[in-house]
Design a protein around this nucleic acid. Sequence first.
RNA 1: GGCCCGGUAGUCUAGUUGGCCGAGGACGCCGCCCUCUCAAGGCGGAGAUCACGGGUUCGAAUCCCGUCCGGGCUACCA
Length: 480
Amino acid sequence: MAASVRTRIAPAPSGSIHVGNARTALYNWLFARGQGGVFVLRVEDTDQSRVSEESYQAVLEDMRWLGLAWDEGPEAGGEFGPYRQSLRSDRYDAAALSLVDAGHAYRCYCTPAELAERRKAARGSQAAPGYDGRCRDLTERQRSAFDAEGRSWSLRFRVPEGRTITFDDVIRGTIATPTSQIPDFVIKRSDGSPTYMLAAGIDDALMAITHIIRGEDLIAATPRQLLLREAMAIEDVPVFAHLPLLVQPDGKPLSKRWGDVSVGAYRKGGFLPEAMVNYLALLGWSYDDRTNIFTVDELIDRFSLERVARNPAAFDVAKLEWVNGHYIRSKSPAALAADLELVCVEAGLPAGTVEGRRILTAVAPLLAERMKRLTEAPPMLRFLFGRAAPDDKAAAVLAGQGSYLTAVAERLEAIEKWTAPAIEESLRGLAAERGLKPKHAFQPIRAAVTGTLVSPPLFESLEILGRTETIERLREAPTA
RNA sequence: GGCCCGGUAGUCUAGUUGGCCGAGGACGCCGCCCUCUCAAGGCGGAGAUCACGGGUUCGAAUCCCGUCCGGGCUACCA
């Protein structure tokens, strides 16, 4: 039994979570849960310029919606807090200080503008990755001179020369990087704030994270954070697992121009959290060669880092919709009605009442099997919340049907019990008497009652609508 | 440019100890059935020179080499 697995998701609070981060969060969560470990939520808000309380809340809200409960983090607490980097600057300062004292970091007086210029100049040449190490060995006198000039400084990590940093990635195997490829990187900005490299590296160590599961884009950051740990004499080395990127169907990186990239957008778009979780789990991971639908417990039980794919995965909305449809159909009428109430109210339908709930619960099973997204419901059940003029196609079908609809109304008035089977029996009887094919017998009724040619099953719809309302609509339908 | 990671049908993938793969499943697509519309469901179908070229082997998607293509990193962003 693995004693104490600890994983973490460390989102920047810049609004609703990106689906790629949501997947990373999910994998971390699944792994921790499956190992009986702890899942930590840490907010990386070191870049003060782009955080707001609102977007911070949006992140927590998305996590809750997805059902990814964190054991430690904001609001949950924990012995390794605080869990917002903006509240942990004392730790970063202390680490930076000791790094400088030990000679592992030094002041760099180069300004961003100078760096940009030198980088530009070095572009064409052979080697030259990043910083050229100009301030690496400044003398005390030179430093004083810069200070006298009033130049501000940042702190850079002194990357040791001539070594190769190696680590084993659970998903990709061994990855080795010669330190010649790693320039002296900034760990503390001139405004005193820590960079991601320092803050994340320290926090992962301080929070005793045992498994770092993150995006492939961070694989280049790994040797640097390993170097940082070594310089701070941190013995424990976490297990690394770098997930493949999420891309668009055309293979390009996910961008807003292509479509929705935030969890919030899918939530508003009528997707169920369980569908989102199931689909995201499948984006880059598989259990076997045939299983597509998993309950959360099954995912927790079966998920493993070893079975995560290595190649980028394209986000396919069509498949997400299929998964979503599956979960919509598996919901109980009452539960689905609760979801429908939200989207109906959002769509302006007066569904938020006791009567509204009764209606929604009744149509829920009917709608379930023809929805891929909850947002498709309002147009299909609008007729249950009020009359509307028929659309063009319905109007065309209604033309000249006045006497037939009147006959239908009379039949329905004579029914003893207002139930779908009774309605069906009655209307089929009438159709048979008139020699009408079912389609020709029923479409005019559908048009008259719902105002459209596409609706939930007719007889059930009429039952839910009620006898009085049904008959009135039949008699008052515009058939001219 | 340098370093790193990838490359099985439109998409997600199975295949990881070479033969059971003349490549399996799912979404999507096409057709049929069911049927009061739309769906759902059932059945069937098209779709992959396993990026390309060499090599090793009786035999390679699976091993080796090279090439090409895509992506990531190369920031006082994370």
